[in-house]
Design a binder for these strands. Sequence first.
RNA 1: GGGUGUGUAGCUCAGGUGGUUAGAGCGCUACGUUGACAUCGUAGAGGUCACAAGUUCGAGUCUUGUCAUACCCA
Length: 878
Amino acid sequence: MLEKNYTPKDFEEKIYADWENSGDFKPDMRSNKDAFAIVIPPPNVTGILHMGHALDDTLQDILIRYNRMLGKKVLWQPGTDHAGIATQMVVERNLAKEGKTKHDLGREKFIETVWKWKEQSGGTITKQLRRLGASCDWSRERFTMDEGLSRAVRKIFVSLYKDGLIFKAKKLVNWDPKLGTAVSDLEVVQKDTLGKMYYYRYPIEGSDSEYVTIATTRPETMFGDTAVAISKDNEKLKHLIGKNCIIPIINKVIPIIADEHADPEKGTGAVKITPAHDFNDFEVGKRHNLPLVNILNPDATLNENTPYEGMTTQEARAKTIEELTKLGLMDKIEDHPMVIPYGDRSGVVIEPLMTDQWFVDAPTLAKEAMRVVENGEMEFVPKSYEKTYFEWMRNIQPWCISRQLWWGHQMPIWYGPDETIFCEENEEEALAAAEKHYGKKVELRRETDVLDTWFSSGLWAFSTLGWPDKTEYLDTFYPTSVLVTAFDIIFFWVARMMMMSMYKMKQVPFKKCYIHGLIRDEKGQKMSKSKGNTVDPMATIEKYGADALRFFMAAMETQGRDINLSEARIAGYRNFATKLWNAARFGEMNECRLDTSYNPQEAKLAVNKWIIAKAQEASKEVTENLNSFRFSDAANAVYQFVWGSFCDWYIEMIKPILYGENEADKAETRATFAWVLDRILIILHPFMPFITTELWNNTAERSVKLIHAAWPENEPIDEQAMKEIDWAIDLISEIRSLRSEMNIPASAKLTVYLKGAEEKSKQHLSQLDKIICTLARLESIAAYEGEITPDMVQGVFKESTLLLPLKGVVDFKAEKERLKKELDNLNKYLEGYERKLSNPSFVERAPAAVVEEERRRQSEAKENKAKVEAALERIANF
RNA sequence: GGGUGUGUAGCUCAGGUGGUUAGAGCGCUACGUUGACAUCGUAGAGGUCACAAGUUCGAGUCUUGUCAUACCCA
């Protein structure tokens, strides 16, 4: 017996445990159908589930469950990411609470501490994914720092290095002074800020009165200046080109050079060039062979090359301005809107800094990664994201992959005594290579830098399947079927996976890439901890059940749009689950048990044939929409069928049968009900796996679990079977509408006549008499050919006229109003048809079918108009 | 500055290839405890599809422009 109330908490966790313990998430390797695989975007190992995950993983689970029910070999490969910077920051913060830094522990001890932290808090997010219902094959869970995956990382690294696609270079990089590491371009966020523009003068060498006025937003960097640039097109200033000027305070002489970087329209037209601390200036410096003067320490304080050693940039800036003012060289300070780079993790200002770093030759790798998207081997859904991808790939810069951190994959690089580089997969091989190189055994020093987290994530599609070993899983599931992720991850991850996979596997990592939007709050604001508008998916699941949250995500997922979270809507989908629960209880109460000998094609009763055809139609819609990643259309198709067709109409229509005496009809109806309910459970299962399973388990003895039940494919739909009941539904709706408009109490049982009905309608009427009377609350309904009398309220129904004899209680005023309104409506339509059909070019140029349909509507409207006019005339004097 | 979206009912949003009277959920109004369900049912109100031109027999849908708004890149 089903409980009276739907309480998801009672069964969701229990059902999940059963699936996992029974191995239901493991692929059926004996299946003779295609493979279908998804690799999960690995969440941070120490992270917690947020609404973005809830969306991303719900969509994946829907695809996984759907394909599993299609009988394919299905793998959803789970795992987590070590998230270098993020995780190290958390552990460092914990240490800080004890008043310690990572240096107090030393590298080895610190890494040990991180592993401990990972063990301690690492299971949270995977537990939460289980609570959401994610049917990942947990027995294959991977971690980016696993031995296997680390081996893949080393192998790829060595391969790229030996192919000349990884190189070390002293370059200007984005330096995060708080974290003490280089970061990639992607980890820098540019923020619009209102800053200041400072105008001051550099004296010209050998002149007492000549100056060049420069404008800068960062005066403190002037100690690193090695030139001043002026455009040769700058008529006012070009006479200065070739002279020297003097950096005040330190009285250093630098040249004035000609360079287009100095836009005559901007600032003063003269630009100070600081090649070691500005990306543009670095390029200028390269063009003119300018020396590089580094003025910053790794923590962004000024160094010994300046008079202000040890000061922060802010302090140095104030001091510089003070000194310049004292010297009388300061002209003016203006407000100036500018963009300042910040570290996306640390939140501090990023400094361009000259350092030795390691780079991946992304421009070379990008070529193949672009080619396979151009030729369709990998398709973005929606397709428009291709543009974003190409745009970025075309302008891609070498990828800085070294991080001066401790937590991560240490690079497989060793240095010999003379700094010769040995890149091998392990120390032994490096030693061997060194011995060969030097002709004797030498001591090597290992590179201390670790790799950018996204380097190992870039291998995820094949490293998790066992690469570099040749495995059955790699054979079967690579390339994977689809990657599901948010658009903000395209550059970080999708692009890197594409490059790495094409480089090593020579095949795309996934055939399709489904990109969804972000989850925002109710008002459309981005969710963030600092704003305090985040919603915890676990709390939502606690309150409404995982199924409601999942269905919300599916129903709201229309391609390429962000989703505003709506608690009212989630509650609505909980109500939907309740509705289904109660429908199942109705079946249980009326002994609608599954009959294994039942064949839906042999159903005789019109209602049963109708609901079967509707169920098949809904199944087809869900299938087609899932095949094209139209999640909301798929979800809405089930929703409409369950609530609109099954609950609102079918259950109401079969009541007279189930409460009646005809045992054969009853038996067929009960079996049909059970069959349709099963069908609902099947097509709804990918969206709401818990309630569907609970009902599946409680409505019959089963030989197959719902998670493995067969998905309906290629069913013929009996369109004809739908017509009779659709006719009755229209009729009932018309009568209900008339009753309501004429204020006839629901309790009043009426007699209704149908005048001018065709033979077919008369047949329907006699067959569905009982259903119509029950649902429209009638005493009786019958065909009628007598006169229409003024006490009959009348409505137009298809070819016939609907008559409600009210025996002296007709509210003639209301009736006149109602008929007039209807007449106005008809006239409006008629005008439209008239306009179209009297236009010769419409009749001539529109397809014949469209014209024909328009004519049909016109004549129908004309007939209806005549009926309404006659009705009005009949009661004109009342 | 460059690019990409979005603008449809009070609110949140659907409307693959142009063709019935533009749909849904929530909210609102009226009625209703009918033997699954008030986490419900029945009926209803509510839209110049941002604006302006254009293409077309026909535009919410295609083109161009304007305005508003969001995001990405520099």
